[in-house]
Design a protein around this nucleic acid. Structure first.
Length: 680
DNA sequence: CCGCGGAGTGTTTTT
DNA sequence: CACTCCGCGG
């Protein structure tokens, strides 16, 4: 019934047919990796493996879902395959077995800013902000602690490398680390890192590991190059007993070094699993050869050589990727809008096109231009929806209904009330935490005596909200949400000048909330796998049924593909990011990022930049990305302007293709003069 | 002790 | 430019 030979090449086939034992698949970009995973799941299930015993760890839940649903089309049993990110798997597993670690399973998840808040409280308690030294800020502290964990380095090492000016605080931060850890334990809080740390601890208990690995007999880990040491250990532990593990990855696409990931896990996989089978998927089914030529050149120019050289299986060479220079970001945005429209009129729907960028802010003027032209779009990456102040505000109200021990949320909710500031909120929170039930809190802890008179009204409203929320059906998150919104709305309007814009988010959130069966699930999902802001921000002005154009950071575009891809902001200081410029390793990561961006394109690739950068009101000239200037890369592109020395060697100026980039003589001159001048 | 206004700072990528 | 920190008036 399964005719695998027809659908797969020999390498894919061997990956798919491997059933027991460790397998490492090195899969180049566009080499049909998703397809291999899809068919392997299918093959396992067809061979009688229970789908529930297959665990598919991927980078996003979307990716897991995609592979599972494709496999399910061939065999509906595949739907029961378990999958998700390391973090969501950790959450689920800890919910189940937290008792083994002596933890309550009623924990709340702290996202990054909650965690920073908690760290701030701990640091204040230790008096670190009182000394008139410049102790690091809470976000910096959070980053330092998290980095130390994810990179497996001591706090001193991290400080020396990344924050040399803070080295003298190493002992204090060490103390803070302990304080923060015990704080979290006391409050039943887990931050993102704890999810992994505790999962690893759990799996190190022989009995528990046996339990978990008898449940999951077949482990598959996608994007293995982007796992960090902790995740590598978890993968190892999951498979330690049965050795049925397949890791899939591509060392050339490792782009999460900043989070402690490294392709080391790929390198070490064969050492950890001795008889491991190694399979390479090298043929590229996705892109035209001209696109791959540029991608290959990017890799060639790196010091860390990658053996890979992508070869297209496609007959058509395709158009040469284009490089366009624009005077400023308005022109760039306008041109992209025109081009997108043009492609659309040629029959290429918006859903087959994508605009990619290094950092979200680069896309702001494009977003404005798209809206102006009624082109629907969705943005992936950048500031998350759930990180905005108003969303965090309203979620805090739901959190305290669910968990009266949630100190951070209580504090946030109380301090919003008129007349209650940080101090009073502290005091109130403290008395609240001594109580065991919400009734108790409403009756005794929250009384008017401890707040100024002008806060009485707000406090009474809060109590009324909590009372009705508690009596509300917990299985109806929509109803509870409405109550919270009712309460929060006046506060919200007072707090934000731009509330009329932000209110869209709160309404979108209402829709999402009503889709859940329990508030607890909603809150967990929001912390661990939050909806992308973009999904909610589809511009409604266009034709309502039109599928939107994708705007995405390159990071968030990982694993995806489009017919036509625009990569904007090819500026030194943007891609590569200015933060990476003094560090060889980081620049290499940036170039892999460029590589990932390029290899998303199937048929058409447009690179662009604009020269008129603005910084603090002063106009500066942006210098073209060093990646584009690399010799073979430039040769592979059809550029609109020959810059500087190159003359017209290998550059084809004939085809104007309706593009109107421009410079007048003077600004071009300026651009050239300013080359080499550091931007920051 | 709250909350406002001014000054100063650092500014990416994600679970 | 947005967020945080600081100092002052109420």
């Amino acid at each position: 019934m399964l005719d695998l030979k027809d659908k797969l090449n020999p390498s894919q086939l061997s990956a798919v047919s491997a059933i027991d034992g460790p397998v490492l698949v090195i899969a180049g970009a566009g080499s049909g990796k998703t397809r291999a995973i899809e068919y392997r799941v299918l093959n396992l299930v067809t061979k009688g493996v229970r789908p529930e015993s297959i665990l598919l760890l991927t980078f996003t839940r979307k990716a897991a879902h995609e592979m599972v649903s494709r496999a399910s089309r061939h065999d509906p049993r595949c739907k029961h395959v378990d999958g998700g990110t390391f973090h969501s798997f950790a959450f689920k597993t800890l919910k189940r077995y937290s008792k083994a670690l002596g933890l309550s399973n009623q924990f709340s998840i702290l996202d990054e800013s909650d965690s920073a808040e908690a760290i701030h409280r701990c640091a204040s308690k230790l008096g670190f902000f009182e000394k008139d030294l410049k102790f690091p800020r809470k976000d910096t502290l959070q980053t330092i602690l998290s980095m130390s964990l994810n990179k497996g380095r001591s706090i001193s090492e991290i400080l020396e490398k990344e924050y040399p000016h803070f080295v003298k605080f190493a002992p204090d931060i060490q103390k803070l680390k302990k304080e923060y850890a015990s704080y979290k334990l006391a409050k039943s809080y887990l931050d993102y890192d704890d999810l992994l740390v505790y999962l690893k601890l759990l799996l190190e208990i022989d009995e528990m590991r046996k339990l978990v690995s008898s449940r999951y007999r077949y482990i598959m880990v996608d994007e293995y190059q982007d796992t960090n040491a902790l995740q590598g250990d978890i993968a190892y532990l999951l498979a330690a007993d049965h050795k049925n593990i397949m890791a899939v990855g591509d060392d050339a696409q490792s782009i999460y070094g900043f989070r402690g990931s490294s392709h080391k896990n790929i390198m070490e996989f064969p050492k950890k699993f001795k008889e491991c089978m190694i399979i390479k998927l090298e043929e590229n089914y996705r892109s035209t050869q001209t696109i791959l030529d540029v991608a290959n050149s990017v890799l060639e120019n790196m010091n860390n050589k990658y053996s890979k050289c992508l070869v297209s299986t496609r007959e058509d060479a395709g158009d040469r990727p284009k490089l366009n220079f624009f005077k400023n970001h308005y022109d760039e945005a306008e041109w992209i809008v025109d081009k997108v429209r043009q492609l659309q009129s040629e029959g290429l729907g918006l859903e087959h096109q994508a605009v990619l960028f290094r950092s979200a802010y680069v896309s702001i003027s494009l977003q404005a231009e798209l809206s102006k032209n009624g082109i629907p779009y969705q943005v992936f990456g950048g500031l998350k929806f759930y990180e905005t102040a108003h969303v965090k505000d309203i979620l805090s109200h739901l959190k305290i209904v669910m968990n009266i021990k949630d100190e951070i949320s209580w504090h946030r909710v109380l301090a919003m009330i008129e007349g209650i500031g940080p101090k009073t909120a502290d005091k109130l929170t403290e008395t609240i935490l001594g109580r065991t039930s919400l009734e108790d809190v409403l009756g005794k802890a929250l009384n008017d005596k401890c707040v100024p008179a002008r806060s009485a009204k707000g406090l009474a409203r809060l109590k009324a909200f909590l009372k009705s929320a508690k009596s509300c059906d917990e299985a109806d998150p929509g109803a509870v949400y409405d109550l919270a919104l009712d309460y929060y709305l006046p506060v919200f309007k007072e707090k934000f000048d731009d509330w009329n814009i932000r209110i869209n988010d709160l309404e979108a959130l209402r829709q999402i909330a009503s889709r859940y069966d329990a508030i607890e699930e909603l809150l967990a999902d929001f912390a661990i796998e939050p909806p992308e802001r973009g999904v909610l921000r589809v511009e409604p002005k266009g034709n309502s049924d039109e599928k939107p154009l994708t705007l995405s950071t390159i990071h968030s575009a990982k694993g995806l593909e489009w017919d036509s891809v625009f990569i904007i902001g090819l500026i030194d200081g943007v891609l590569p990011s200015s933060f990476s410029l003094d560090n060889e390793e980081e620049i290499e990561e940036e170039s892999r990022l460029f590589y990932v961006g390029i290899t998303r394109a199937k048929n058409r690739l447009f690179l662009s930049l604009n020269h008129e950068g603005t910084r603090g009101g002063i106009t500066q000239f942006n210098k073209v990305s060093r990646f584009v200037e690399m010799p073979n890369v430039q040769a592979g592109l059809e550029a609109k302007f020959a810059l500087e020395k190159d003359g017209d060697d290998g550059i084809d100026l004939d085809e104007s293709d309706g593009i109107e980039p421009f410079y007048d003589k003077e600004s071009l001159l300026n651009a050239i003069i300013n080359r080499g001048r550091p931007r920051f």
